[in-house]
Amino acid sequence: MSGLNVQLGGQTVLHHVDFSIDSGEIVTIVGPNGSGKSTLLRAIIGAVEPGAGAVTCKPGLRIGYVPQKLHIDPTLPMTVRRFLDLPQRVHDEAARDALDEAGAGALSGRQMSGLSGGQFQRVLLARALLSKPELLILDEATQGLDQPGSAAFYQKIAEVRDHLGCAVLMVSHELHVVMAASDRVVCLNGHVCCQGEPEHVASAPEYRALFGTGTGGALALYRHEHHHSHDHDPDHAHEAAE
């Protein structure tokens, strides 16, 4: 993979965003609501046209995409197995392998609408894996999962990365979990505020300015749980640590 370079100009939500991702890397984009995180991902998959600048990626790059939320209308009957056949039919064996890899092995015959949140996300992941992606893109894939659920999900992502050697680009709100699971963190607020290794970003002043001391506290809690407390702001620290 030659990497991605994204530049969106004009009065759009993203201003002169430059960044790249290499194969085998797990990069997480964090940022407040409306900071353009999803827009950045949608630019990469081609769902939004950049006003200026360009997205360049390796020719024929295979992208696996796990959307933020997938609402399946209740009037649309859809088994998990049939869902995996979209848009291209796949062999039963490939489907079984992908489901196993995503930890959703037993769900093949179930209706999509009857799945729990965690099962649903695993099926979405399985579908994204079917194309043997070189770049796996996840947009807040753990929304609606409880903390053990999302921790298990990120564990799964890391396993998939190790197994396939693909790059992983994800957006998340769950800073404490994400920070631990990523190789690199990009802090976005219309532009790239700061980026680097999780520890580096967590201590960057731009990051603290964006997320305030509350989330900073949560990070500190995560990193230094045993000898750190934030008495000056207990509510925030508590809320973010949940």
Binding site: L70, P87, S131
Partner: peptide
């Protein structure tokens, strides 16, 4: 197939080149 994918989710379709 393309219609079904686009019906499920537009972004899913974009990512699949539809």
């Amino acid at each position: 197939s393309a219609l079904l994918t686009a019906t499920l989710n537009p972004d899913l379709a974009f990512a699949a080149g539809i």
